[in-house]
Design a protein around this nucleic acid. Structure first.
Lengths: 223, 223
DNA sequence: TAGATTGTTAATCGATTAACAATC
DNA sequence: TAGATTGTTAATCGATTAACAATC
């Protein structure tokens, strides 16, 4: 128990790369489309083609989590969907908080895609007195000072941060001390948080920078 | 010239991994914060610490593009900012179109972070007659049928897709045939587009799935 | 049976890290 | 000079792909 070599994780499982987890979400999305389009089964080749991956990669990714396919047949879509949801934790529904009732925050409250994948926003927070106590887009808005109480009452484990950069770190700290375990951060800053808190950052300007880089780079090569 | 081994890109340059490009955007963001906070210079160690990377990785990433540092000194922030902007193509301003004037589309029009990094939304598109011809959040809204003309007139090279999944592919096709070269897609679908068109997909539900996966996985290990 | 497709091992490829001479 | 830090090469590590026996 005492002997740790380097900083290797002590847990037994093979340790799943984050890249595998994000492809898992893409497999889930494609499988849902396949079911909608009437497919009962699919194959690693088909899934790979739809997403631009090799068939080997699809099989390898799934192999991290178990055996889900049938040699000679492929994968039963409904079955694989259920399995991936279980792995991702979205076989159950998650209660979310959102902080920041600006343009982006309000848009996210109305976003249908969250509900569809098992995420329900159950509380909004802001510090603007004009907004607190009202409902915005049907969602009850609380003062950030009440976050600890509301998070406990409503069993909130994940939160969305949609506030200006200048206050994002303070808001994140408040969420963490209220007991939130994961944060989806839309403010264009790197949050400094305890290691056991999970963070995903979405910086919209950065996404555009990836595009502009690729567009300008391609100028070098002719058509 | 004829002899190509496998499907190796013919272009001379070392071929930059996409992961490097996204870290480049993060370096830029941190450098801008450092300048705001009064730093004249920084180092690979400092940048790495702020972002959770090793110093070696920072230097290696930058080395793809040239020599920007001073041995014994580090990097001059302003200088490195200018260099990265040039690499990413954001030393110039980009004119953007946005398609879809729903909740998310309207929020993105008002998002200050785009302007700040050199992206200006100059035209909105929709197919709802009630919206066309008006200004939304100060932005002129056109019918999607006019996209080719507007794209040409306003020199638009990048576009944001914020429409429902069901129509995202058709919208993307229209943008491409209008001459757009890069698409930031918020619809939760994989777009099938010509190889020379660049796409970045942002699926908000998938970002939350990454969080839920990590939160449930951590249950296995006790504190 | 023949054809299809899995799960898995081994081979390849690519990315990260460590180390260090060169430089300020 | 001593201390700091770069750019770069070599070593390590990890992820992807190819190949194939097993299975339906």
């Amino acid at each position: 128990m005492a002997e740790d070599k380097k900083n290797v994780d002590e847990s037994a499982e093979p340790q799943v790369p984050q890249a595998v987890v994000s492809r898992l979400s893409l497999y889930l999305r494609e499988l849902q489309h396949l079911v909608r389009d009437g497919f009962e089964t699919t194959s690693s080749t088909q899934l790979g083609r739809l997403l631009g991956f090799t068939d080997a990669q699809v099989r390898k990714d799934l192999a991290y989590f178990g055996q889900f396919g049938y040699p000679g047949i492929g994968y039963r879509c409904a079955e694989l969907i259920a399995a991936i949801k279980k792995i991702l934790g979205t076989n159950q529904s998650w209660s979310l908080a959102i902080v920041g009732m600006g343009n982006l925050g309000r848009a996210l409250i109305g976003y249908r895609g969250f509900q569809q994948q098992g995420f329900e926003i159950v509380a909004g927070f802001d510090t603007d007195p004009a907004k607190i106590g009202n409902k915005i887009e049907g969602l009850q808005v609380y003062h950030l000072d009440e976050v600890t109480q509301v998070v406990r009452e409503k069993n909130i484990r994940l939160a969305i941060v949609a506030v200006p950069s200048a206050v994002a770190q303070r808001v994140a700290d408040a969420l963490v001390s209220a007991g939130v375990e994961g944060i989806l951060n839309f403010a264009p800053v790197t949050l400094a948080l305890p290691k056991h808190i999970h963070t995903v950052g979405v910086d919209l300007a950065i996404e555009l920078e990836q595009l502009s880089f690729n567009v300008v780079s391609k100028l070098a090569k002719g058509p």
